[in-house]
């Protein structure tokens, strides 16, 4: 599944990083601790978080993550937007809570074939 399909399916806001919308999504990771993501997230996963500063883009880029989803209507900082456009990593947004967003994504990616 592509990031753009997730955007459509879950009516996500696209804040930035449009050039990465055709990235392939193979899973998700949920954490607000940056070292946890650094140590444990895997390539092509979507990262669900409430952190809005630019280091999330640095980490997503280093880990080759597919996209970042900000929860509860949180918006990225200006320098986060800029960096996301440079790196081509989409920053998406949802009014949903982390629990709800992760649940929907899990069902979509892992639950359907179970």
């Amino acid at each position: 599944m592509k990031v753009s399909e997730l955007v459509e399916k879950f009516e996500l806001n696209v804040y930035s990083g449009l050039s990465g919308l055709d990235r392939e999504v193979t899973g998700g990771y949920v954490s607000d601790l940056l070292s946890d993501v650094m140590g444990n997230a895997a390539e092509n996963e979507v990262w669900i978080t409430l952190q809005t500063h630019q280091n999330v883009v640095a980490i997503a880029s280093l880990k080759d993550l597919a996209a970042i989803v900000l929860v509860k209507g949180m918006e990225p900082d200006d320098d986060t937007l800029e960096r996301s456009n440079q790196e081509g990593i989409p920053i998406l947004g949802t009014p949903l809570s982390t629990f709800e967003m992760a649940g929907k994504l899990f069902v979509e990616l892992e639950g359907s074939g179970a």
Partner: peptide, 16 residues
């Protein structure tokens, strides 16, 4: 508050 400082840095270095 930025999500750093969880005490995982050095152990992440060691693991990798």
């Amino acid at each position: 508050e930025m999500g750093f400082g969880a005490g995982m840095g050095l152990s992440n270095i060691q693991k990798n």
